[in-house]
Design a binder for these strands. Structure first.
Lengths: 159, 159
DNA sequence: TGACAATGAGTGTTGTAACACTTAATATCG
DNA sequence: CGATATTAAGTGTTACAACACTCATTGTCA
């Protein structure tokens, strides 16, 4: 027998009907994201890094030896943050990343992941993977693909 | 002809394959949420309130004259925040809400929306509705329902 | 070639989020 | 009835987010 699913209205003890289906969808996206991000934040806490910092580490691991400049890092973050400079400052202080100012263009500062930073993301890979499976593993392949497809469609806008 | 949709990988200039479908789905949820929340934040800026504060105002509007205590407000927020007290403090200073300590149980403080707060949420209704339609209106009814259904299923977990 | 725009990084400041901890009032039970 | 737990709200502190602004270096073209 199918388990009765707890709707968002029940979750937030909301008893009024949604004003529109679009609103219901938007709130469901926000709520689901909040739940997933909370789980991620909990997993990162023992390592004393935030989700954004974890995101940066993964971006810089992907960038390899070439590294990336501040603006490129900022552009690849899932959530845009103003003040990438001090985000990187803090990570540099923690010795998770290193920065080198360019020689040909002295405005340019390339940012690299350090061995310490790399060790942390590598160490976290399995754990984060397990969290994703724990939270989304009960959806089958077709459902996950459909979810990705609907969200992609949503983000690509009406134009 | 169908417009080619921009995938998350293209959006974030990521060229590596996802490690799992679950991860791809989780990141798509997070990214979509970030985009929607950014749009909402922009709309709220002229009124000098944050998304969380807007969320509180809607909760308290829904609660009506009875109001809600601090913990109830916190429980109904889309994203959990520690320190609801000072969130409400700030809103009280802005005269958006009012608090009354209970007489029979003097621990209990009920929180109400003020006329000023009510005026702001009411004023915002149409605008927020338009934002939702702008961002999700190009999905048809079946797609939105499926999105809600998949997200609800995701949040309800494997157990 | 020299003024001026464009680009990349960084700073100052304020408010808010996150964490652990405390105080006050009521309920419970030996 | 008094010790103890429970429930509700609040406080102290640190670090981070958000906003507008500045500084330095390079590109461009009249």
């Amino acid at each position: 027998m199918a388990k009765p699913l707890k709707s968002l209205k029940e979750e937030l003890k909301q008893n009024k009907p949604w004003r529109s289906l679009e609103e219901e969808a938007a709130l469901n996206v926000a709520r689901t994201s909040a739940v997933l991000e909370h789980a991620l934040a909990q997993a990162l806490k023992p390592f004393d890094i935030t989700q954004t910092q974890y995101n940066v580490l993964r971006i810089l691991r992907g960038a390899g030896d070439a590294g990336l400049c501040r603006n490129e890092v900022g552009a690849r973050l899932i959530r845009r943050v103003p003040d990438v400079t001090r985000l990187l400052d803090r990570m540099e202080q923690m010795a998770l990343i290193a920065r080198v100012r360019g020689n040909d263009d002295r405005r340019y500062v390339s940012t690299h992941i350090t061995a310490k930073g790399l060790a942390i993301v590598d160490r976290l890979d399995k754990e984060i993977c397990a969290i994703h499976r724990q939270h989304l593993g009960h959806l089958d392949k077709a459902q996950l693909e459909q979810l990705v497809s609907l969200l992609t469609l949503a983000r690509n806008g009406p134009d």
